[in-house]
Design a binder for these strands. Structure first.
Lengths: 133, 133
DNA sequence: GCCCCTGATGACAATGGTTCCCATGGTTGT
DNA sequence: ACAACCATGGGAACCATTGTCATCAGGGGC
């Protein structure tokens, strides 16, 4: 499987630009809407395809919210987790070396191989909690 | 909010019985199929409703697999996480007091309130890894 | 045990996020 | 510029899940 270089299309650039601008996580549909409002309309299928390609290339992170929707965000490289505000989507990347070791240790102790884990922290950030009073 | 006692119907008992018998996680559709094969046919809507009720009552745990499907399992009470085999679904409950404290501490440090977290470990159990060779 | 009220059921429609299909158009190597 | 071929987009298809509503049955009251 020789990795073919993806073409540099207007749509691909537009999707990447949105992810550059956004701070928190956003769904594919939200990104599609933002593109429409910017006048840089891109087909919904294309948004999905490009997001999936970026995930495959490990250039963005994806996670599911409680509703099962997939959210995307441009993140730093390397393994990390997220502290996400339920209200505004603001996201803080967190590293947890201890947790990584713990998870691997638990799996190893039970004879599991090819181990991966998911860990996300959800809460309400200070600003949103204050404005909700 | 006075909790009304749910009625003791054949369908409710049948769904609970399946969860009693199963060891690992199963999707609503799988449980529906098992019921059909047992001859204790139950409407799909009813399966979903009863599973949701059991989740609300904290009598079973629910989590999403990579495909976004919701999986259900009868678990011990109290907060815990899961080590799940991708191949056979075998599940081991794990407690991680250190992780709990770490997650809460991280959230607190950033001023987040009303904090929750998700943590699941996926891997291939020894038996499945051996049979895959 | 029998009735009746009311919540539970189930067949089907509807929803919503995501993926598939395929004719068309734009990109890139030459 | 040319041509080959990948990317696009609009709509249909998919699939898990939820909603609708007429019908059914559990269980409290008698």
């Amino acid at each position: 499987m020789v990795a073919t270089t993806p073409r540099n299309t207007r749509q691909r650039r537009a999707v990447a630009a949105i992810l550059d601008d956004l701070d928190g996580f956003a769904s594919a549909q939200e990104i599609h809407d933002i593109l429409r409002h910017r006048g840089e309309s891109v087909g919904l299928s294309t948004v999905y395809r490009n997001l999936q390609a970026l995930v495959d290339a490990s250039e963005i992170d994806a996670l599911r919210n409680d509703d099962g929707e997939v959210l995307y965000r441009q993140c730093s490289t390397g393994h990390h987790h997220h502290l996400v505000c339920r209200a505004c989507g603001r996201t803080i990347e967190v590293a947890g070396p201890t947790v990584e070791r713990w998870a691997d240790g638990v799996a190893d102790k039970h004879g599991f191989v090819d181990v991966a884990h998911t860990l996300e922290i959800f809460g309400t950030c200070g600003a949103c909690a204050a404005s909700a009073d």
